[in-house]
Design a binder for these strands. Structure first.
Lengths: 252, 252
DNA sequence: GTCTATAATATGATAGAC
DNA sequence: GTCTATCATATTATAGAC
């Protein structure tokens, strides 16, 4: 694993007994359009390449999201994608590159829903919608959610830069929106960061801890009844809170 | 890895090219009190053994919680525990056993705080206290939280049984308490399962996604000010909700 | 109990024919 | 582009001396 010792290191505990640490070979770039040929043929070929890459990436996501980078072998990904190992290594120079590609595809999906927040919206509606959309993702792309979680747990060695930049900026912008809502009295006085964390946590939980959810409730988000139940409850908890309110019977 | 093919299998994608699948050797049991000796000497020895096991387990938790089972080598654990690899393998028959031991220690810690809930408590205080206690754990034992999360993501292959039994029973008992609170009008009408999920998710988030939290806020729970901020905000969100209430300015 | 080999093997990656 | 060897190595686990 410590083949490329210097660059963006993957999640692995620092080896104690390092032998020699080879001088980091430079890998070839991805197969790109070779040069001139009939335009139609080129585009057809490019599409085929992209398709195959995509098949591999999907297979990789499924395995990485369950077993992590080290728990998954190239062989397994290849088998799942129905290509040979060497063929896979033709499309992705090495395992780590494959992993990073999977992650990179993820981040975009990940940041998307948050972009929706804008000051002129009704915050209750905006937040309610956001919860639903994130739960849809937890239902339809639990593997994406899990891989993201896995990467976070490991300290996000391959996303750290993006985290520090893209994510942070987006969160800052949306925090400003939330602050505005609070200032306008449309939202209870709550710290935007912690509110965003609560939104992320409560919704992703159904994907990342899906096994636990199923062990306890016996159901999954694929069950439409349970899905709506989850949406409704998360929305109620985050928006109204669990305390009894004035309009219901009040204890103490 | 597919050495013991049958039993409680660890989180690894099913290998495609299985060679022979050996007939699962029976491993020796742990070193236990050999027999008769001076009682004092025996107890001293036993303590030493337990101490060493404990040191190894702690080192293992630290690494497993970051890099997972497959991302951690026995060598690394041994180095961190400051014992030789062979010596480690004297105390734990194999890597998997070590991993399971670490997990087993965890579950107890994990279930503890929830036991606190009882019907005669004021729910707001009970839930508020629970949030604080879980955040203390997220602060003081983030590695425990992360490993638990890792295991869940992977489908909890080694905890599945316990999940189905212990955890489920405990949650059922506490759900009954919550239902009682709701029936008494002390709590808003909320499904106990989803409330418990929300409590877990919002509090563990600060440990499991600690890197993200730090990337965004620049702070960690080790900062006392941030810790109190987190406690306060999570309590407010879960108990009162984010919506503006009657007593504050009401938008629309 | 602890150590030094060393066996056994899984897996990442490359070379080179076609 | 795809395949069949094949190499190289990291790592688990055991054997056996002390």
């Amino acid at each position: 694993m410590p083949k490329t010792a210097a660059a963006g290191k993957p999640a692995r505990a620092p080896a104690k007994t390092v032998k020699t640490a080879k001088p980091a070979k430079v890998k070839r770039a991805l197969p790109r359009a070779p040069a001139a040929r009939s335009p139609a043929a080129v585009s057809r070929r490019l599409r085929q390449i992209e398709d195959k890459r995509s098949v591999i990436l999907t297979a990789a996501l499924g395995l990485f999201s369950r077993f992590g980078l080290h728990g998954t072998s190239i062989d397994q990904v290849a088998a799942r994608a129905d290509v040979s190992k060497s063929n896979l290594l033709y499309y992705f120079a090495n395992k780590e590159e494959l992993y990073v590609c999977v992650l990179r595809d993820l981040l975009a999906v990940w940041l998307e829903p948050l972009r929706g927040f804008s000051p002129e919206q009704d915050p209750r509606k905006a937040i309610g919608d956001y919860i639903r959309r994130k739960l849809v993702i937890s239902r339809d792309r639990p593997d994406a959610s899990r891989l993201f979680c896995l990467e976070m747990i490991q300290g996000a060695p391959l996303l750290r830069d993006e985290l520090g930049r893209e994510l942070r900026d987006l969160v800052e912008r949306k925090s400003e929106v939330i602050r505005q809502w609070v200032a306008d009295g449309k939202l209870a006085p709550v710290d935007p960061h912690h509110l965003i964390f609560a939104l992320w946590a409560t919704t992703q939980h159904y994907a990342d801890f899906g096994v636990q959810v199923q062990a306890i409730t016996g159901r999954t988000l694929d069950d439409p009844g349970f899905f709506e139940e989850a949406v409704d409850n998360v929305q109620r908890i985050v928006l109204q809170g669990a305390s009894a309110h004035a309009d219901s019977a009040s204890g103490r």
